[in-house]
Amino acid sequence: MVTARTATIINDVEHVEVDAVLGSRWLMQPDAFQSLTGWTLKPEGLCRGDVCAPIYHRDKVLADGLIDLQEAAPIIGLSVVTDPDRGVAALTASAPARAQEMISLQAPDFTLSNLAGEPVSLHDFNRRKVLLLAWSSW
């Protein structure tokens, strides 16, 4: 019998510890997948609110009631990299989903740490012009 172990998923906001069954694939219980992505496994597919994305290749996406993260991510508009050997995966918007967000011209909110380790968000500068300047030491 396969047993789940704790693994780390990096998303756009934080590092999340999840239970996953890791071998050649990265498999997750539907409830763990749901708390990670917001999408629920239902007979009609992966669903969030009123929207359901059909699963065309159920044999690839599902395995003994578990969800294959690598195969399921593109169905719900996510890019994913999984490293089951090291127990680390990373998720973000797929290229078309991100492009769609970008051309809306709505500045996405974010929170990063300042050098004192305090969180600072874009919305802290509400009602002001913001010059977001990207630089580096390299």
């Binding site: 709505q106 500045a107 874009l122 010059l131 990207a134």
Partner: peptide
């Protein structure tokens, strides 16, 4: 980098 993005008072990228 270095790169700049301008965001206006309404949170729109200008």
């Amino acid at each position: 980098v270095p790169a700049a993005v301008w965001i206006d008072e309404d949170g729109r990228i200008v």
